[in-house]
């Protein structure tokens, strides 16, 4: 068991810290920098969809509704914690009622 944990830790840590050295050693052109700066937005997209549909098993629309509520709240510049709580309450209500 400990061996599995160590193995998992090693293969998780290497991809995480390797770039710290790479950016120090490698001078890359402007367009690579632009690519890297777009990564957070692309990553956020890929982290949200389609996985959000699986929040409540068998009811994909509930996750989507929760996400839409979060999007509307965030659009009106509501504090992130309230956005998160609002989405949780929305999913809770819809999951209990529907």
């Amino acid at each position: 068991m400990i061996a599995i944990i160590i193995g998992m830790a090693v293969v998780t840590m290497i991809p995480r810290f390797l770039p710290a050295f790479v950016v120090d050693k490698w001078v890359y052109p402007k367009w690579v920098s632009r690519w890297l700066n777009a990564i957070p937005y692309a990553a956020l997209g890929a982290l949200i969809f389609p996985w959000i549909t699986g929040v409540i098993e068998g009811k994909p629309y509930i996750g989507v509704i929760g996400g839409l509520v979060a999007a509307v709240l965030a659009f009106f510049k509501i504090n992130t914690i309230i956005v998160v709580l609002g989405a949780i309450i929305t999913v809770f209500i819809f999951n209990t009622v529907l």
Partner: peptide, 28 residues
């Protein structure tokens, strides 16, 4: 229900940037 929390946070992080620059929404 708390399973939505991190997705809601991702959305809350993304939306303000999309408001400033619609192309960011396109990328996402």
């Amino acid at each position: 229900s708390m399973g939505i929390a991190l997705y809601a946070m991702f959305i809350a992080l993304l939306i303000p940037s999309v408001r400033n620059e619609w192309r960011i929404g396109l990328i996402a």
